[in-house]
Structures are given as C-alpha cells and as structure tokens.
C-alpha cells in the first residue's frame, strides 16, 4: 500500500511541476508586465528598479525556481490590477467558490447516485424512462442557458429566489459563509443547481449503466439463490461493485465543478474565484491567472490522489496488487 501511495504522490508532484512551468511561462510570453504596471510616463530608472524588484533581471531557470519556491508557500506575488497580494485576494474569494462547489458536488453525487440506482432497478418503469429522457436535457443544454432559465423562472416570474450575488454573509475567522443567513442560503440554491446539474446527469447515467452491468453478474444471481432480499442485493452487493468505476469519474468531476464554476459565477455574478479569473483575463492580470491555474491543478491532483486511495479501500483486489 505505501509504495503505491508514494508512487502516486511522486506522479502528482511531477504534474504540478509541469503546470507550474506553464503558469510561469505566462509571465514571460504574455507581454512584458513592466509595460502594464508602469504607465506612459516612466523613466528607465523606474523600469530597471521594478525589474530588479520583481526579479525579472535574473536568468529564466532561476526565475522559475524562485516562482516554484514561492508558489509552494502560497505566494504568487502582487496583482497587477489591484496592487494587492494575490494570495490575499484569493483567500478573500475562495470561500464563495468552495461553498458553491461543495453544495453542488453534494447535490450532484447524492442525486446522481440515487437516481442512477433508481433507474437501474426499475429500468422498465415509466418514472425511469421519464428521468432518463429528462436527463438528456441536462446533458445537452449549456450551463449558462440553464442558469438563465432558472433565473427567469424562480427569480423573475416566481420571485422566490435571488438572481445574483451571495446574499448576506457571516464572517468567521477569515472565512465568509452564506450558510448561516437565510438570504445566503437562498442565494446558493440556483447557482448550486446550475453548476451541479451536468455532473448529476453524468453520474446518474454512469451509475445506471454500471449498475445494470453488475446486476447481470453471476454473484448477483447467486446472492438471489441464497435468498437475500432485493434490498440487500441492490444496495449492499450491487451498489458497492457499481461504485468502483463511478468513484474515478466522480473524482474527476469534482475538480471540474471547481474549474468550471467560472460560467455559473458569471451568470449569477457570484463573487468567487471564477469571476476573479474572468476579470483577471480581461486585464491581463498574470499573477492572478497563474495563481488560479496552480490552485486548480493542485485541487485536481489532490482529488485524484484521494480517489486512488479510496479505490484501494473499496476494492480488495487492488489492495493486494498494490502491495
């Protein structure tokens, strides 16, 4: 087990070093930051001073090493646009995105698995057919359209839920949360559904097809022959076997939820990282872009590492071969 985890950790570090290189190369290739930072009226001295201050006069490998070193400590430099520490801006924005992502992930996983199991068990029922057809809509409609439709229905027509922003937030030790106020909770509902809908339908369809496959296996027949009840067969024997491949996809999709929050955040004017990133692109705010890129890749890598470990926990066959 330990060599297996060490191997995965090593691979993860390799991935991060490579994305680090890509993030770093943005500084070198996407224009000269000095031009952006200093206005028209500048002296050569200003330029030289700033260049030295930012370390841009050093050879590229040294700069890269310095960048990696600082990135590892969470230091991505100063935002060109806001003139503040990037880490500070990110910390300020992160809670909004993480809360949104967590809620939509829970929505996607819980609903996806429940509906997937339901449509697999009652695969010939009317409800199952209806859900399957409806799920096609979830897969085929683009996220922004779903967001706009939800806003139109629940905010404009019915007036039940807010159409933008986080509502009132409460600050607890540097973390702002919308879970504690009613307007905060209300504001979360629509964006969370919008963000999670695609993942939910994907998980549902995957769970359904895997489950149908598992239900055809001999050990399920044998479980029936042993006289076990349908409930035990479906939820104990079949579901656990279904989860093995599903977990990988869920892991990848959780990363995607955070990464693709950009569109949802734009539609709902959600003050999170996605919106920050969109604004950073508009103003070529490279430190913010680099930090965002690094953060997302760390998140993907960590989630996948956890998934691999979880995999070994569920499937004893992997545990043995991994030893």
């Amino acid at each position: 087990m330990l060599p297996f985890i060490l191997k995965r950790v090593f691979q993860s570090i390799l991935v991060l070093v490579i994305t680090g290189a890509i993030a770093f190369s943005m500084f070198t290739f996407v224009g000269d930051p000095i031009d952006n930072m200093l206005g028209q009226e500048r002296t050569m001295e200003d330029v030289e001073r700033l260049r030295a201050q930012l370390g841009l006069d050093k050879p590229i490998p040294v700069q890269y090493f310095k960048f990696l070193n600082e990135a590892a400590q969470g230091n991505f430099g100063v935002s060109y646009r806001q003139g503040r520490e990037v880490s500070e801006i990110i910390m300020e924005r992160a809670p909004a995105t993480l809360e949104l992502a967590a809620l939509s992930a829970i929505f996607a996983v819980v609903m996806g698995i429940a509906l997937g199991v339901f449509t697999a068990i009652r695969r010939d029922g009317f409800a199952a057919h209806f859900i399957m057809s409806a799920s096609l809509i979830g897969v085929s409609l683009p996220t922004f359209l779903i967001g706009i439709l939800l806003i139109y229905l629940f905010s404009v027509e019915l007036g039940w839920l807010p159409s933008f922003g986080r509502g009132e937030v409460v600050e607890i030790g540097g973390w702002t949360t919308g879970f504690l106020t009613e307007s905060g909770r209300k504001a979360l509902i629509l964006p969370a559904i919008t963000l999670g809908l695609y993942q939910m339908t994907l998980i549902m369809r995957l769970v359904r097809s895997e489950m149908l496959e598992v239900l055809r296996q001999d050990y399920i027949r044998f479980a029936r022959a042993r006289g076990l009840s349908e409930r035990v067969i479906n939820f104990r024997h079949a579901l656990k076997n279904t989860m093995v491949p599903v977990i990988t996809v869920i892991g990848l999709q959780l990363g995607a939820i955070i990464a693709f929050a950009i569109i949802t955040e734009t539609v709902f004017q959600w003050p999170g990282l996605g919106l920050l990133f969109i604004n950073a692109i508009q103003f070529v705010d490279i430190p913010v872009m680099a930090a965002y890129l690094m953060m997302i890749s760390v998140m993907f890598v960590v989630i996948n590492l956890l998934v691999d470990i979880l995999y070994a926990f569920i499937d004893p066959r992997l545990r043995v071969s991994a030893k």
Binding site: Q217, D218, Y219, R221, A225, R226, G227, H237, N241, R317
Partner: peptide, 19 residues
C-alpha cells in the same frame, strides 16, 4: 431459496461477490 433449496453455480470465479 437458500433456506430450503441451496444452489451451486458453474463458475466459482464469478459466483462470489469480489468486494
């Protein structure tokens, strides 16, 4: 099933739940 009538299948490699 299982209580009064037991069953043995052909392929022992697939009749047990691997997990």
């Amino acid at each position: 099933r299982g209580r009064e009538i037991g069953m043995i299948f052909q392929d022992p490699l697939t009749s047990l739940n691997p997990l």
